[in-house]
Design a binder for these strands. Structure first.
Length: 962
DNA sequence: GAGCACTGC
């Protein structure tokens, strides 16, 4: 079933109504979501200006309107509440009076209760012992051993197998085959280090399998090998199957999210993403279906691989027959060996063609170039942020001179470089990205060097876009001689396949890419690499509790990887646009992901696996995260009611931990199931946690933004645009014109397809948990309210709470909002609300807040006050000076409320929270004909536009000025 | 006036 949003209602939803009325009567208050900031009278100075604004704010507060429900709706809600009161109060009084051990006594015995209690009372040690005592699939079967052995022997005489073997034997890893196998026999854990091109990824699992088949151990051998990326899991599996002259699904298979080709249960190799292994370990921590675990590319230090490495340490003493192979690049392999009690290590040399390296000083010797003169501007030092930025700049400059001066002296002594080169090197601006320099270098290569593709690494989209534009406008790259490909995860590649192909002889291929071309995308025929030395890196700023994204110097590992991209088919050249001195300051590896991200999801995993207290477990990781970072995440999980004070999972937390989603979007889909509006909310949840499908097409950004605005259907919501994009995609797909739809709206077909499949995955889980009656996200009963936009926004906001900002002012540069934690924030230019005006309310809810050049809210939905009332977990309404004030939004302005209205809203809120908690502990769909349905309907009526149809009109709810 | 890259039975 499809849903269609109804935009009619917004006009009489009471947020909007309020606004129109207020516009006439008052110059401030809620009715003015934003306006030109009133300016202070000219002539005021210093403190006087401050006082002027203070008084203005005081005036504003006095003028605040009062929220009042009409007696009619009030009465109706009261009746509903009275009818259901006895039911809930009995359950919740009981719960509140009981001790912790009996905390969940009130839950009826059910499958849910059993599983939930198992998780909160269990521990990993016990689970491992229990798991091992259970029957395993990997049982010795002599009959099968013989069959598998014969099958393997038959292969040895096949021509194509032998041809493949000839190729395989040329790989460096082949020479170490027996050594590796011996190490595996003698040890439970080994570390294998090897560089690109050594063949470890495709060969080692096969060595083990073939060795076991030959020894007649086929029936007790099953190897699982993890890859950090979906693409590599598939391509490695395909390659290995081809080498074994088999189709996928026999002795070789793969499994990634939403896609799997299983293997036979014994005598086989399964390639999967690291996340899949983690999922498997949630139900089978002892990994009893496997004989060997190979973790590939662990040097990348993803959260998942770090987590598994730590977890396996607890598994190996219990499963002494399980073999672990840790595969890493060479630079940091000793650390893994050390972590595993100095386990043996074996090194395999790699094979790539030689790459000649040039540094900035060499580039400056090759081409004439001058960096812009160092600025002598006096920075504005007012305001905390500006002062911080100023200090940072000064530090940076000092650091630079500390590094560069001794180096320049050394170069001067060696007399290898001209004086003008040294003088450019001394300019602090030589450390800033210069697209002009890059363009000149490209031209130099094109004019002086042999044919061959050029790959340019840049930090981000803006740089790619600008360089692309600069090159096209220079007229030096006519299309009959050059073909330029921008390459970025958010940009559509005009022709997907063409970029990988070698162009015709007289055309040079130039690729302008982000770090995506370091590992994820490989273009074989690259001969020249230009490495700007910087990459954007997401971090978690613990001190300010905010995500950041800024360009930083790459690590040595990145630089090496970039250089290697030039030597895949023949010897190449790599031009680094930083000095040798700067390179000495690079870190060996990028900071492990675990130290750069929020930890909510990791903590939920810890709880699912019953690994005890978060801090204890995280302390046993190779590089433990900061205690403060753990606290921040624990606090958020408590705010979300996923963990209780003792750090145990709550029933809600239990469900959230099961879902392959961020906990906040997980909450959204649970609400969606209860409120029966799953299609749009599933789409939004999937887009927020996975990836949104909107492309940034070069040169057509405006057009793309317009199309996104169209999809938001006047709802002041990026989230609605996400839902609508997927809805229309699914309609178009049924009609067979999805491709055309994607082109028209600048959407990624592949992303939308995955999002669509994720919706099914969510439905399956919620169906298993009994929150839905069907595993089809389009089921009619699961979408009875999918057309209600106000409800969709409410659920989005409920999930995202406490992420709420207040719109303060609109400027030609976009909307400025305010959040309690960060003060002034901006709306990201890609948001449909960035250039909007005439907002129906002054509140925005958002998922991503990130600090880059400024603090940006990336996706926003404008929400009305009534929506806000039902999304905070415990909104308190307190009496103050004869008025009732709703606070707890942590927002600057409280909402004044009439006493009767305050009472009704608070009670309805309470009923909703009780109902939700009851449903979470007693998973089932809502009975819409019972009081459950009445409570939810009362809320829906209150927040939504359907009031008129339900027999109310807009006057039922309104604001009046006191 | 701008979002490095990944991932989830």
């Amino acid at each position: 079933m499809s849903h269609r949003f109804n935009s009619r209602g917004r006009l009489n939803s009471f947020g909007r109504f309020n606004r129109e009325e207020q516009m006439q009567s008052s110059a401030s208050g809620y009715g003015r979501p934003y306006s030109q900031r009133p300016r202070h009278p000219p002539g005021l100075k210093g403190k006087e200006i401050g006082l002027f604004y203070r008084n203005l704010n005081r005036e504003k507060k006095k003028e605040q309107p009062t929220l009042r429900l009409s007696p009619h709706i009030e009465q109706k809600i009261k009746t509903i509440l009275n009818n259901s009161k006895s039911f809930y109060s009995s359950i919740f009084d009981e719960r509140c009076n009981s001790e912790y051990d009996d905390k969940y006594q009130h839950i009826h015995d059910s499958q849910f209760k059993r599983k939930f209690l198992e998780i909160i009372n269990g521990n990993i040690e016990h689970n491992l012992v229990k798991a091992i005592s259970m029957e395993v699939k990997l049982q010795r079967n002599s009959n099968m051993d013989t069959i598998l052995l014969n099958e393997y022997k038959d292969k040895q005489i096949q021509d194509n197998y032998l041809n493949m073997l000839k190729f395989r034997q040329k790989l460096p890893v082949y020479h170490k085959k027996s050594e590796i196998l011996q190490l595996i026999k003698d040890n439970q854990v080994i570390v294998i280090s090897g560089e690109t091109g050594c063949g470890k990824t495709t060969q080692i699992a096969q060595f083990i399998l073939d060795d076991q088949l030959e020894a007649g151990n086929g029936s007790i051998t099953r190897i699982i090998c993890t890859q950090p990326r979906r693409i590599s899991a598939i391509s490695v599996a395909e390659r290995v199957a081809a080498e074994r002259t088999e189709k996928l699904g026999k002795s070789v298979g793969y499994q990634i999210r939403l896609e799997k080709i299983p293997t036979r249960e014994q005598g086989s190799i399964l390639f999967c993403t690291t996340g899949i292994l983690l999922q498997i370990m949630k139900t089978d921590p002892a990994l009893k279906d496997f004989s060997h675990v190979i973790l590939d590319e662990i040097h990348e230090r993803t959260t998942e691989s770090d987590f598994i490495i730590t977890l396996l340490k607890q598994v190996i003493p219990k499963r002494t027959d399980l073999k672990i192979l840790l595969m890493s690049a060479t630079l940091n392999s000793e650390r893994f060996s050390k972590y595993y009690n100095e386990c043996p290590m074996i090194h395999i040399p790699g094979f790539t063609y030689p790459v000649q390296e040039f540094y900035l000083e060499d580039v400056l010797s090759l081409i004439q170039f001058r960096f812009p003169e160092a600025e002598s501007t006096v920075y504005r030092k007012y305001g905390k942020a500006q002062r911080e930025r100023y200090k940072e700049k000064v530090h940076k400059k000092e650091d630079f001179f500390d590094i560069i001066q001794p180096y320049i002296q050394q170069l001067r002594a060696e007399v290898k470089y001209a004086e003008h080169v040294l003088s450019e090197l001394r300019n602090p601006n030589s450390e800033n990205l210069s697209l002009e320099l890059i363009e000149k270098l490209v031209r130099y290569i094109c004019n002086n060097k042999q044919p061959g593709a050029i790959l340019i690494f840049l930090p981000g989209m803006m740089d790619i876009s600008q360089l692309n534009k600069m090159m096209l406008e220079s007229g030096c790259y006519p299309p009959n001689k050059y073909i330029i490909y921008p390459l970025h995860s958010r940009m559509p590649t005009i022709d997907q396949k063409l970029i990988f192909k070698e162009p015709p002889d007289d055309i040079r291929k130039i690729i302008i890419a982000t770090s995506i071309a370091e590992t994820s995308i490989t273009i074989e025929d690259v001969v020249y690499v230009i490495d700007c030395g910087k990459t954007k890196l997401g971090r978690f700023d613990i001190a300010h509790n905010i995500q950041t994204l800024n360009p930083e110097w790459v690590s040595l590992a990145n630089a090496k990887q970039r250089r290697g991209r030039a030597g895949r088919v023949k010897s190449g050249e790599c031009y680094h646009l930083y000095s040798k001195a700067r390179e000495m300051t690079f870190d060996q590896y990028p900071l492990p992901e675990m130290l750069r991200t929020r930890l909510e999801e990791v903590i939920l995993q810890i709880k699912m696996l019953q690994l005890g207290k978060a801090k204890e477990f995280l302390a046993s990781i190779m590089d433990p995260p900061d205690l403060k970072a753990i606290d921040l995440s624990l606090n958020l999980l408590r705010t979300l009611n996923a963990l209780d004070e003792e750090e145990h999972l709550t029933p809600l937390g239990y469900h959230l931990a099961h879902l392959p989603l961020d906990p906040r979007t997980g909450k959204m889909i649970l609400w969606a199931a209860l409120f029966s509006c799953v299609e749009p909310i599933f789409a939004i949840a999937a887009s927020l946690t996975f990836k949104d499908a909107f492309y940034c097409p070069l040169g057509k950004e405006e057009e793309a933004n317009k199309k996104k605005l169209e999809l938001s259907m006047g709802e002041y919501s990026d989230h609605i645009a996400l839902a609508e994009a997927l809805r229309r995609f699914e309609v178009a797909r049924r009609r067979g014109n999805a491709g055309q739809f994607c082109r028209e709206y600048f959407l990624s077909f592949n992303t939308l397809k995955l999002l669509s499949e994720m919706k099914i995955q969510f439905a399956q889980y919620l169906y298993e948990m009994k929150f839905l009656n069907s595993d089809n996200p389009g089921d009619k009963n699961a979408n009875r309210n999918s057309n209600n936009v106000a409800l969709i926004k409410t659920i989005v906001c409920a999930g995202l709470y406490p992420n709420i900002a207040v719109i303060r002012r609109a400027s030609k540069n976009g909307i400025f909002s305010w959040t309690p934690e960060d003060g002034s924030v901006r709306t990201h230019p890609s948001s449909v609300n960035c250039k909007a005006s005439n907002f129906p309310s002054q509140y925005l809810t958002y998922f991503t807040k990130q600090r880059s050049t400024a603090i940006y809210l990336h996706d926003t939905t404008c929400i009305s006050i009534p929506i806000l009332l039902f999304t905070g977990p415990n909104i308190s309404i307190k009496r103050e000076k004869g008025k009732y004030i709703i606070n707890n939004f942590n927002l600057s302005e409280n909402i004044i409320c009439e006493s009767q209205t305050a009472e009704v809203i608070q009670e309805l809120q309470h009923a909703l929270n009780c109902l939700l908690e009851y449903k979470i502990t007693h998973p089932a769909t809502v009975l819409w004909s019972s009081f459950e349905g009445q409570i939810l309907n009362a809320i829906i009526e209150l927040i939504s536009q359907e009031d008129r149809e339900m027999g109310y009109n807009k006057e039922d709810i309104y604001y009046s000025s006191d």
